Simulated assay, not measured.
Amino acid sequence: MVAEGQLPAFVRRLIPSFMGRPLGPMLTLSLRSLARRRPQLFDRLGDHRGASYRIDPNDLAFSFIVVPDGAMAFVRVVGRDDPATADVTIKGPILMLLGLLDGTLDGDALFFHRVLSVSGRTEAVVALRNAIEDAELRPSDLLGLHGTLARLADAGVLAGLSAARHLAERTAVHSKAEA
């Protein structure tokens, strides 16, 4: 049975755990670039800039340890069973977690519907949520794109995420009907 918002099994099989490894350095560069362009985003975290956040997509074989410390920010990819500790753990399907970043989904609603789970330092979670909501991030912001290229990237990425969420929803409905 497919849980709400999870990638269908055939898609998960296309994303083996080793694919997560190159994401760490790429995401670190992206996060640091964003910090140079929009430092106020990271300032909004206050004392929690140096907190570690484990972002754990429960439908992938790996998770991310993120420290959003401005120019010193980093992202490390670890296996789901890796004992690495973090100040905060946010767990849920990857499509739902991405929806939090781009603002298409409401984190409070996902939390209260038990699609997401959060543990650890509550004040750090609230600071991160507020910073992300205030930022109104678009995919192009994370990629450092501007102008026409930014608009194309935003449209393409958001359309792709929407299609993926729709596929996940249809797969979940189909799986429930078969059960």
Rank of each mutant, 00 (worst) to 15 (best):
T104C: 12
L45G: 00
P68G: 02
G20V: 07
D102I: 07
A84N: 08
A127M: 06
V88N: 01
R151A: 09
V157F: 08
L158S: 13
I55Q: 00
P25S: 09
D87R: 03
R44I: 06
I94C: 04
P68F: 00
R21H: 10
N130Y: 13
F42Q: 10
L31Q: 01
G79Y: 03
R76D: 04
A163E: 14
R138Y: 07
F112K: 07
V115N: 02
D56Y: 06
R21L: 04
I94E: 01
G46P: 08
G24R: 14
S119Q: 15
P57F: 03
V115Q: 14
G107I: 00
L60T: 00
F42A: 01
V125H: 03
D56I: 00
P57Y: 07
P68N: 02
L110M: 12
R44W: 06
H113V: 00
A86D: 05
A84K: 13
V77K: 02
P139Q: 13
I90R: 02
A51N: 02
P68V: 13
A84S: 07
D154V: 03
S117D: 11
R129S: 10
G46I: 15
G24W: 09
P25I: 12
I55R: 07
D87W: 11
G103D: 10
K91F: 00
R21A: 08
L27Q: 05
L31M: 15
D154G: 03
L45S: 11
V78F: 08
T85Q: 09
S140E: 08
A84C: 01
A164Q: 08
H146E: 15
D102F: 15
D69F: 06
M96V: 10
S140F: 11
A127I: 05
I94Q: 07
E123V: 02
S117V: 12
L137A: 12
A135K: 14
L110C: 06
S162P: 11
R36W: 03
D154P: 05
P139R: 14
F62K: 03
S140Q: 04
N130A: 13
A86L: 10
I90V: 12
L116D: 09
V77W: 06
S63M: 01
P57A: 11
G107P: 06
